[in-house]
């Protein structure tokens, strides 16, 4: 073997080896093995829920609502979720952004036609409602068409969002019972207000 070949053989072999190994790593996706990047909350996305009824609807509304709020606050939905989950005093801007986000979520589901008719939710709502059992029975006896004519889901939900004390609600995230009680009160009040307005319109 000549001196030149001896001097060049190993460097060439090393260059090929290094290029090959780095090339294989890069071709396999090396360099992009990083944590998931957060998505832009202002870009509309489809949300689904494994739950049915009110729980599923609430989940979809909250997911879209947090997206809307994060978009308004110029943060990622993940950062906002973590921030809200940490408790503590919420700023006016955060409360306002959340309320607007939830309102947008109701409107979007309504436009998409994915809001369930009020009659579908009434039965479930009555189960947990603190009402006289005769009154519950009377309401259950009403035909769906009557319930749907009297109550519009989007109207009830928008009123609920407006009535909710979001500051207090976010302060009680740890207490599931308290959270349900607040939601129930807001929904009941929203139903009453919606019915009262309907009656007022008829008169």
């Amino acid at each position: 073997m000549s001196a030149a070949a001896r001097a060049l053989g190993l460097p060439v072999a090393a260059a090929v080896l290094v290029a090959g190994v780095i090339g294989v790593q890069l071709a396999g996706g090396g360099g992009s093995f990083e944590p998931l990047r957060t998505v832009d909350p202002c870009v509309e996305r489809t949300v689904t829920s494994r739950s049915d009824g009110i729980e599923g609807l609430t989940e979809r509304l909250v997911l879209l609502g947090v997206d809307g709020a994060a978009c308004r606050l110029s943060v990622s939905r993940e950062a906002l979720t973590l921030e809200l989950g940490q408790g503590g005093e919420r700023s006016d801007a955060e409360i306002e952004a959340l309320r607007d986000g939830l309102r947008d979520a109701v409107r979007r589901l309504d436009e998409e036609g994915t809001l369930p008719p009020a009659s579908e939710l009434v039965g479930e709502a009555l189960d947990s409602a603190d009402l006289n059992r005769f009154l519950k029975a009377a309401i259950r006896a009403l035909p769906d068409s009557v319930v749907n004519a009297a109550l519009k889901t989007d109207d009830v939900l928008l009123r609920t969002v407006d009535d909710l004390d979001l500051r207090e609600l976010l302060g009680n995230l740890e207490d599931q019972g308290d959270l349900n009680a607040q939601l129930e009160t807001a929904v009941t009040q929203a139903v009453k207000d919606s019915l009262a307005d309907r009656v007022r319109d008829l008169v």
Partner: peptide, 15 residues
Amino acid sequence: FLVAGGLVALAIPPS
């Protein structure tokens, strides 16, 4: 050079 190349490759594992 091999040590440098190996360390670059260790910096970019695909999984």
